[in-house]
């Protein structure tokens, strides 16, 4: 069957292909290209091609920001994993009828406005917020605790917004886990901890990597969370990129930071595919969900 111009097949394939090439593939190439150009006050960017922007990211000031951002995002990822894993396990152990309900309740906030929810956190953590008011009311403290505008607040906000992204892939990995493996291991004398560590964790590793990827990468970019909860001092990579693009107008420099994010995405995808290959070799799961 050939696809002639005007046929249904032609449009079905063509529209999305053109759209994604024009607005996903091509733009990503342009980001990499822009990161290699020189800043120009008149035309935004200009030739010659060079790697100055990358060299500048190694400046002590920016390395510090990069490290702070990475650390906050990594901590958010770790906390999401520590909460999300037992949570996903708890969902899987429920009767089938209840699983979608609880899962839906966790995912529901994802579809609501995350800016608004960040604002709600700000409201709760503030000096006049519920936590400080109740602690003072109970007589536990005299002065309000400085909860807002700290790294703690940023990490909390990131966890709060991104938790569903961790729970979802973990749930789908855990759900596919073959319970017979556990029975077999138990019969052979393995305790609950070693069964967890030697069976559950390795066989759900694609879910773990996918969850970490879906928390870590957005976490580095969510500039409004650090803006509202971290104040001017606790910046995320997203804040740096935003400043470079919208205020300083140094596009090559901002693009260089984004390329760092793209590289990180590539690395984590590679890790994910390795983990899924490992698992399918062991005969636990069948490929990815997509």
């Amino acid at each position: 069957m050939r696809s002639s111009f005007g046929s249904f097949r032609f449009w079905a394939i063509g529209l999305a292909s053109v759209w994604l090439t024009l607005f996903v593939f091509f733009p990503n190439l342009l980001v990499i290209f822009t990161s290699l150009l020189t800043r120009d006050p008149q035309a935004t960017v200009s030739l010659p091609v060079n790697v100055d922007s990358y060299v500048r990211t190694l400046d002590v000031l920016y390395l510090q920001v990069l490290w702070d951002s990475l650390r906050m995002s990594l901590l958010a990822m770790v906390f999401c994993l520590l909460i999300g894993y037992p949570f996903a396990m708890a969902i899987v152990s429920l009767p089938k009828r209840w699983q979608p309900v609880i899962l839906f309740l966790v995912i529901l906030p994802f579809w609501t406005n995350s800016l608004v929810r960040t604002y709600a956190i700000q409201f709760i953590l503030g000096n006049q917020g519920i936590i400080n008011k109740s602690l003072i009311g109970l007589g536990l403290i005299d002065k309000p605790l400085q909860l807002l505008y700290t790294q703690f607040a940023v990490i909390l906000g990131l966890c709060y917004i991104l938790l569903p992204f961790m729970v979802l892939p973990l749930y789908s990995a855990l759900e596919k886990l073959d319970i017979r493996l556990h029975h077999a291991a138990k019969d052979l004398g393995a305790g609950p901890l070693s069964r967890f560590w030697y069976i559950t964790v390795p066989l759900t590793s694609p879910g773990i990597v996918a969850g970490c990827l879906m928390v870590l990468l957005p976490a580095m970019g969510m500039f409004y969370i650090s803006d509202l909860l971290g104040g001017a001092k606790n910046l995320l990579l997203g804040n740096v990129i935003k400043t470079q693009f919208l205020h300083t107008r140094d596009w090559p420099f901002g693009s260089a930071f984004s390329v760092i994010l793209i590289v990180l995405l590539g690395f984590m995808l590679w890790l994910y595919f390795r983990a899924s290959r490992f698992v399918s070799k062991q005969g636990g799961l069948n490929g990815s969900d997509f």
Binding site: V24, P27, N28, L30, V31, L217, P218, M220, G221, M222, F223, L237, G238, I241, K242, F245, G254, S255, S258, L261, I262, L265
Partner: peptide, 9 residues
């Protein structure tokens, strides 16, 4: 793709 990367691209 992180939204911020999509935004600048």
């Amino acid at each position: 793709t992180p939204e911020i990367v999509m935004a600048i691209s």
